[in-house]
């Protein structure tokens, strides 16, 4: 209940965007069963939003410590390239292990720069953001590596009891991350570190290990997003996979109400934020507006959502609610 109340502005915004989508496309909310899976625009929103939702699961933790991870898009490209280049010769567990392991290493690298060498997060992760895409291009030799492995393809195009696999993976990752940070005291330690690192260290929290862990997790989430993106198009496109998605992930986290200065975070709101952004993208595609307007519309909606959350407007809504 408490979580629902805290997420009211985001939930309202999400419903409003869905409603707007319904207005531009009458079939928007229709979901039907086709070829053993759910089918419809609404399903697409969750399916297409999955990579950013996965990214935001890692990003929200990094942001909670007061950091930022600009490298997630590039890590997606690397992990996708690794997965695609192994997919036709190795069994799926090996493919996944290699891709996710690579992402974890990327995350640890970022964490090392930030937590141990004390480089500012924006600079530290910028290094991998730039270099990472180059690394991915080296793996793919600059072309799109395609694969035929049905196992890997299943992760992008398959469905579990009708739910597209990318959505299943997001749910799985959400549950796993929730278990990891809320089932343990890690969540509290992350919020404490982001809220006041000095005080947290004096209270005995290993803030360095906490920082290292969140970047590693972000790398892992990005790698999974990269695998999903590659599985979706049956190939690794090092030039374009995950391009600019780090910005969408940051936006999702901000829309979720997290402060970029660190502190409180909500995993499910971050995922909701990612789907909200996708609902917008899908709506724009459905609207038939000329593509030149895409970014303008997106910016306007994001502004509206952020205004909804602003403390001043929240104060106003409190005033309105008080009489009841």
């Amino acid at each position: 209940m408490r979580a629902l109340r805290a997420g009211a502005p985001q939930l309202l915004a999400f419903l409003a965007v869905l409603l707007a989508d319904r207005l531009v496309a009458p079939q928007f909310l229709d979901v039907h069963w086709q070829d053993g899976r759910l089918f419809g625009n609404l399903v697409d929103v969750f399916n297409r939003g999955a990579p950013v939702a996965l990214l935001s699961l890692g990003m929200v933790l990094v942001v909670a410590t007061g950091g930022i991870d600009l490298s997630v898009g590039a890590v997606m490209a690397i992990a996708g390239a690794v997965a695609a280049s192994l997919a036709d010769t190795q069994p799926l567990p090996v493919v996944l292990g290699a891709a996710l392991g690579t992402g974890l290493l990327c995350g640890l690298w970022n964490g090392l720069l930030v937590a141990v060498l004390r480089i500012q997060p924006i600079v530290a992760t910028l290094i991998l953001m730039v270099a990472g895409r180059g690394i991915a291009q080296l793996i793919t030799e600059g072309r799109i590596i395609t694969f035929a492995s049905p196992d890997l393809a299943f992760l992008g195009g398959g469905a579990l009891v009708g739910v597209p696999m990318p959505v299943v993976l997001v749910l799985g990752m959400l549950v796993l991350t929730l278990a990891l940070v809320r089932g343990t005291a890690l969540g509290l330690m992350i919020e404490a570190t982001g809220g006041n690192a000095r005080a947290s260290a004096l209270a005995g929290i290993d803030t360095r290990a906490v920082t290292l862990a969140v970047y590693a997790w972000s790398g892992l989430c990005a790698a999974l997003a990269g695998v999903v993106a590659a599985a979706d198009i049956l190939g690794a496109d090092a030039n374009n996979a995950g391009l600019w998605l780090e910005l969408d992930a940051i936006l999702a986290v901000v829309v979720a109400g997290s402060s970029l200065l660190g502190g409180r975070f909500s995993l499910w709101l971050a995922v909701l934020g990612a789907f909200l952004i996708q609902a917008m993208n899908t709506g724009i595609l459905l609207s038939g507006l000329p593509p030149e307007l895409n970014l303008v519309v997106k910016a306007a909606v994001v502004l509206a959502v952020l205004l909804l959350q602003s403390p001043r407007l929240a104060g106003l809504s409190l005033l309105l609610r008080k009489p009841s």
């Binding site: 509290l188 404490a192 809220g195 000095r198 005080a199 209270a203 005995g204």
Partner: peptide, 17 residues
């Protein structure tokens, strides 16, 4: 600067150490 984590609740601050 060295004691409280202002955003966290009284409960969270108390159990922190």
């Amino acid at each position: 600067t060295d004691g409280i984590v202002a955003d966290l609740t009284v409960r969270e601050n108390i159990v922190l150490a």
